[in-house]
Nucleic acid binder design. Structure first.
Length: 553
RNA sequence: GCGCCCGUAGCUCAGCUGGAUAGAGCAUCGGACUUCUAAUCCGAGGGUCGGGGGUUCGAAUCCCUCCGGGCGCGCCA
C-alpha cells in the first residue's frame, strides 16, 4: 500500500474518532479507503468514508464534520467535500516527488508490498499430459501462471510453481502402446497404433531419437514389457522436451509433481479412506462412488472404476491433501478448458475432506484462437490446442506471445492476432511498451555521452518538474503501487498490461513535450530522475509478466 | 435440460470486493518530422455497458428474470 494512503488514513481515522466522540457517528468507525479520482479537479486522493459511515444519515454533513476535525498535516494542502459526500484531498507535490525518488532508487521496493504476509501459496499450472508437445493453450496457461505467481511474490506471498505430471493411468498406457507401435514400425514391422492412441507424427521422430540408444533388444520382448519400458523412456524424453519448450518460453517450475508417486505412496488409497470416513462414499455396479451431489454437483462421481483403477478425481483428492500436507496455506489451480466440468466435483471432494474450500481456487484458462489475416488458423475454433507452442515462439517470439496471452482475462477465450504480434510497430502493444523502455535508455545514454552526472534520485531538484506532462507522468508512476496489489488480489495480469501501456503512452507524451538533456543542469537532473523512475517501473512490470525490457531496439 | 463463462465503440477487449462525466488498442478521418529513437505524438467522430425488473444516496459492477453466444455435463483426461 502506498505510503501516502497510510498517512491519509491515519488522519482521517483520527477525525472520525473525534466525530464519534462528539456523538456525530454511530457504530463502528470504518477504515477509510482511498482512491485516485479519475478527474483531476477531484483532487489527488479521495475517500468515500463519509458515504460508508453515514449509513442512512447525511453523508455530506458527516463529511463536513470530518474535515473540521482533521488534524494538521504538512502533506495535505486542502480538503473539500464534493458530490454526495466524497472527501477530496489536494496534496503538496512532495508526495509525487517521493514517488519518483522511490521508483528511481534500486531496491526501494517500489510497487512491492507485504499484504500477503508470507502466506505459502502453491500455484499449479500447465500440467499438460506428457504425451505430446506443449501446445499454444498450455502456453497461455504458462504465461498466466507465471505472471500470477510473480504478482503474488511481489505482494509478499511465498510461492511455489508446480507442474502436475499425469504419468499414471489409461492415457499413459495408450501412450506406451503408441510408442511401442512406432518402435516396431521403425524396425520394419507391421504394427498399428491403438485407435484411441497418439497418432501424432512427433512420436515417429521421438522413437527415432530414442532408438539410437536402445538398439533392437526390445523387438523380441513381450509386447506388454516393450510398451511399458518404451513408454517410460518416451515419457521422460517428452517431459524433457516440454520443459525445454517452457524454458524457452521463460517458464520454469519449482516442482514437477508426479501423479504416479501418489499411487505408489498409497496416498490415493489414503484419500479414499478419508472420503469413506465422511460417509459420502458408496458402492454401486462394482464401482466406488462419491456422493458429490450432496455438495452441489449434478450427480455422483466414480472414485474407483469397477476394474479397480482409481479415477482422476481420486488422484486429485490425494493431491490436494498432499499439497496441504506440504504446508501450503493456499492452492491455486489453473486448469485447461477441457477440465471445466470437473471443478464442482473436485471442490466437493475438497470440502468433504474437511479442507477449507476458500483456500482452494480453481480457475479455467480459456482457449486460444490463432488469427491470421482476420481468419482463424486451420479453420478450427480451437487452433490453439493443436498448434505447438514452439511454432508460435518461432513465429512471433516469446515476448509477444507472453504479452498477448496476458492482455486478456484468463477466463475469456482469446483471439490471438498473429499478424499484429509480429509487427514491429506501435500498433503492437508489446513493441510499444518495449520501445518506451528502449527510448528512455537511449536518453540516459545520451546524457552519459554528454558528461551529465549519473542520476541521484534523492538529491535531484524534483520541484523543477512543473510541466503538465511531467505531472501526468509522476501520477502514472504513483498508480503502480495500486495496480500491483490489485492485479495480484484479482489474479488479473491484464491489469498490469493495461497499466504499462498507459504508462508508456504517458511517457511518450512527456518525451514530446519535455526535452530531458538540456543546458539547465537542475532541470536535466530532475528529468533524468523521472526517466529512471519510469524505466524502472516499466522494466519491473515487464519482468513480472516475464517479458524482456530491451535497452535498445 | 442442468452447470460454468461470455455479452461494454465498427473490430478485439479492459473496467465489475458499487462511487463522481464508461476507457484502451485496432480501424476510420484530419494534423505534426531542421528534435534525446516519427518504431512517435496531437486531434475528431463513434456507446440504449444484450433487454427488463429489483437493492442502494449511487449500478457496467450486486440480486432476479429473459434473450443471444461459447464450453462442460463418461466407470475419458
Amino acid at each position: 500500500m502506498a505510503e501516502v494512503t497510510e498517512l491519509l488514513g491515519a488522519i482521517v481515522t483520527e477525525a472520525l474518532d473525534r466525530a464519534k466522540a462528539d456523538g456525530l457517528l454511530e457504530g463502528e468507525v470504518p477504515e477509510p479507503t482511498f482512491e485516485r479520482p479519475r478527474r483531476k479537479d477531484h483532487g489527488d486522493w479521495a475517500t468515500n468514508v463519509a458515504l460508508v459511515a453515514s449509513a442512512g444519515g447525511n453523508p455530506r454533513s458527516l463529511a463536513e464534520a470530518i474535515v473540521e476535525r482533521l488534524p494538521a498535516s504538512d502533506i495535505v494542502r486542502s480538503v473539500e467535500v464534493a458530490g454526495p459526500g466524497f472527501l477530496n484531498f489536494h496534496l503538496s507535490p512532495r508526495w509525487l516527488h517521493d514517488i519518483v525518488t522511490r521508483a528511481a532508487t534500486e531496491g526501494s521496493g517500489f510497487g512491492r508490498s507485504n499484504i500477503g504476509n508470507g502466506e505459502k501459496v502453491n500455484v499449479e499450472y500447465v500440467s499438460a499430459n506428457p504425451t505430446g508437445p506443449v501446445n499454444v493453450v498450455s502456453g497461455r496457461q504458462a504465461a498466466v501462471g507465471d505472471a500470477i505467481s510473480s504478482l503474488l511474490e511481489a505482494t509478499g506471498h511465498e510461492v511455489t510453481r508446480e507442474f502436475y505430471v499425469n504419468d499414471a493411468g489409461r492415457q499413459i498406457e495408450l501412450f506406451g502402446e503408441s510408442v511401442g507401435a512406432r518402435y516396431l514400425q521403425l524396425h520394419g514391422q507391421d504394427a498399428a497404433i491403438p485407435e484411441e492412441g497418439y497418432q501424432g507424427e512427433y512420436l515417429v521422430d521421438l522413437v527415432k531419437e530414442l532408438s539410437d540408444g536402445l538398439g533392437d533388444e526390445l523387438l523380441n520382448a513381450p509386447a506388454d514389457e516393450r510398451n511399458k519400458k518404451l513408454g517410460r523412456i518416451a515419457l521422460d524424453t517428452m517431459l524433457a522436451q516440454m520443459s525445454a519448450t517452457l524454458e524457452r518460453f521463460g517458464t520454469t517450475f519449482d516442482v514437477w509433481f508426479s501423479e504416479r508417486t501418489l499411487h505408489e505412496a498409497g496416498e490415493v488409497e489414503a484419500a479414499l479412506e478419508a472420503l469413506r470416513a465422511t460417509g459420502r462414499v458408496y458402492e454401486n455396479d462394482g464401482a466406488v462412488w462419491f456422493r458429490s451431489s450432496d455438495l452441489g454437483d449434478d450427480k455422483d462421481r466414480v472414485l474407483v472404476r469397477s476394474d479397480g483403477t482409481p479415477t482422476y478425481l481420486s488422484a486429485d483428492a490425494a493431491y490436494v491433501l498432499d499439497k496441504f500436507g506440504r504446508g501450503f496455506e493456499r492452492l491455486l489451480y489453473l486448469w485447461g478448458p477441457d477440465h471445466h466440468g470437473s471443478i464442482v466435483r473436485f471442490l466437493a471432494a475438497v470440502e468433504s475432506l474437511g479442507l477449507e474450500r476458500d483456500r482452494v481456487e480453481v480457475s479455467i484458462v480459456q482457449v486460444v484462437s490463432l488469427m491470421r489475416g482476420g481468419e482463424a488458423v486451420k479453420s478450427s475454433k480451437r487452433a490453439g490446442s493443436i498448434v505447438p507452442l514452439e511454432q508460435l515462439i518461432d513465429d512471433v517470439g516469446p515476448d509477444a506471445a507472453r504479452y498477448i496471452f496476458l492482455q486478456r482475462s484468463m477466463e475469456a477465450p482469446l483471439d490471438f492476432d498473429l499478424d499484429l504480434a509480429r509487427e514491429q510497430a506501435p500498433e503492437n502493444p508489446v513493441f510499444y511498451v518495449q520501445y518506451a523502455h528502449a527510448r528512455i535508455c537511449s536518453i540516459l545514454r545520451k546524457a552519459a555521452d554528454e558528461g551529465v552526472a549519473a542520476v541521484d534520485a534523492t538529491s535531484a531538484p524534483l520541484e523543477r518538474l512543473e510541466h503538465g506532462s511531467e505531472d501526468d507522468l509522476m501520477r502514472a508512476l504513483a498508480t503502480y503501487e495500486d495496480v500491483i496489489p490489485e492485479a495480484a488480489y484479482k489474479r488479473a495480469p491484464q491489469r498490469v498490461t493495461n497499466y504499462i501501456e498507459e504508462l508508456a503512452s504517458t511517457f511518450s507524451s512527456f518525451y514530446r513535450d519535455c526535452k530531458v538533456v538540456t543546458e539547465d543542469a537542475d532541470l536535466t537532473a530532475a528529468r533524468l530522475a523521472l526517466c529512471v523512475a519510469t524505466k524502472n517501473v516499466i522494466a519491473d512490470a515487464l519482468s513480472l509478466l516475464g517479458v524482456s525490457a530491451p535497452e535498445r531496439m
